[in-house]
Structures are given as structure tokens and as C-alpha cells.
Amino acid sequence: MTQLILKRLGIGLVTVLAVSLIIFFGTKILPGDAAQIRLGQSATPENVAAFRARLGLDQPYIVQYLAWLKNFIQGDLGTSLASDVPISSLIADRYHNTVIVSLLTAAIGVPISLGLGILAAMYPGTVYDRFLTLISVSLVAAPEFFTATLLVIFFVFVLDIGNAIVVGSTEGKGLFELIDHFALPITTLCFVIASQLIRMSRAAVLNVMSSPYIEMAILKGVSRRRIIFRHALLNAIGPIVNVVALNLAYLVTGVIVVEVYFGYNGLATLIVQGVQTRDYVLIQGLGMIFCLTYVILMLIADIAAYASNARLRHPK
């Protein structure tokens, strides 16, 4: 078990290194020179050369990469090329919205979807189960902005409550005011993760339900509720944690689309801006943060899968 987890952590670390290589050298093939972009077209060649030296751009790529990685580990993300502001302060200004929306989505969407999924697994084949399956299968293949559009039509155009864009500041708002503030983005993302979570949690519980010891419990006359909550659910926890972590990782894409759709500032809109202005320092820093979050969630998913499997925990 410990060995497996250590091995998985090792693979995770290698993955992070590979990710950093991809991001660093991916942005290095940018046409144009960072110093030239920063100083503008009118800069003299001497100025550009001096600036290159200061940024360390005259060094070989591998030296630059190692310096960049060292700075990243120490929390120094460099200075934005477009606005000449340290990346960390750009992030400090923006991260609230992204973090609030992601956490609230997880806090609201995960319990509801799991509840619905487990309920569907309790009564497989019923009208409720089929209806839920139909909805989640349809939603899973639809883009985030389609879900968002339907919600806007319903809440803004039909019911006339709320706004199609998120406006105003979040400062000094309590939990319920924040939920209200981000109601539409959060609901959109809840739908996005729900479509996966419902299906996968239903499958995880049904999978456990088909095992021999559950059959034994049914035969000895244990009530359905007790079977689900005492016998099945405890063994389904591992797969369910796995599913939850995977879906939260998937939120990375959803968050980007939702921020742009509802037009509020966050980390995702920041990286899109970085791409548009070709601010590669910004892309490197934020790209690493997004990918790290993703890799860590995947790691949790895998370890949950190991930990829940008794055969892997106690190898013969």
C-alpha cells in the first residue's frame, strides 16, 4: 500500500516535471523576443541586448529553464511582459473569484449529485432513474456555454431574476450573498459536474451492489436502506472519492469557459488575456498553477482508488 502510494507520488512528481518542460518549452517557441515585446519596437538594439541579459534570455535554454523552475518553486512567478507587474500580484488581485466559485460549486454540486446518483442506484430501472440518466447523458455531451445559455434564458429572460453577467464586487459579502452573487456561474458548473457525478456514483454503488456479500445481506433479510448505507456505501466510498476528484479536476476547463461567459475577472480570464497579449511569463506561471491543481486532484483520485481496494492494500 505505502509502496504503491509512494510509487504514485513518484509518478506524480515526474508528471509535474514533464508538465513544466512542456509549458516552458511550449512557450519558448513564441515568435518574437520577450525583451523586444517588453521594450517595444522603438528600442535600440543595445537596450534590447542589455535587457535580454538582465532577464537571463541570453543564457542557454536549459539554464533558463532551471532558473525558472527554481523561481517557481520559491513562489516567484516573474514579471508580466504586458503590464510590467509581478505575476504574483496579478494573481493576488484575481484569485478570489475563481477560488470562491470553484469551492462553492464543489460544496453545493458534489453532495447534491452524489445524493441523486445514490438514489438512482437504490431504485435502478425506475422512472426516476431513467429520467436522471437521460438528463445526465444529454448534458454530458453538451458544451458548458449551452448549459449556461439555458440557465440565462430561464432565470434572466423567463423569470426575470438575476443578471446575464456577474457584476459588482464580492468584498465584505457573506456566504449566502456570495452564492447569490455567483448564482449563475455556480449553477452552470454544478450541472457540468453533476452530469458526470450522477452517472459515475450510480455506477460505483451499483457495482458494489452486485457483489456476493450484498446478495448475502439481501438473502438474510436486511432492509434495503440498511444494505445501502451500512453495506454498500462504505465500500463505494473509495470509487466515489475517485470520481469526485476526477470531476473537480474537470472543473479547470469549466471554470475558464464560465468566467468568460459571465464576464467576471478571475484566474481563467487572466490566462486567456495572457494568450491574447502573448504574455508568455504569465502563461507559464498560471499554466503551471492550473496544471498543478489538476495533477494533485488526479493524484488524490488515484490514491483513493488504491486505498479503497482491499486487495491492493493487503497484497497476498
Binding site: I11, V14, T15, A18, V19, I22, I23, G26, T27, I29, L30, P31, A249, V252, T253, I256, I271, V272, G274, V275, R278, Y280, I283, G287, F290, C291, Y294, V295, M298
Partner: peptide
Amino acid sequence: INDAFLSLPTIMLGLVVVAAV
């Protein structure tokens, strides 16, 4: 090598490539 690419959010890879070229 394949797993390293697989463990990245696809949209991030897309963003990096579009930023680059």
C-alpha cells in the same frame, strides 16, 4: 511520455499552443 500529456487539462495544452504559434 503519453501519460504526462494525458495528465494535463486539454484546454491548457490548447492555450499554450495557440499562444505560441
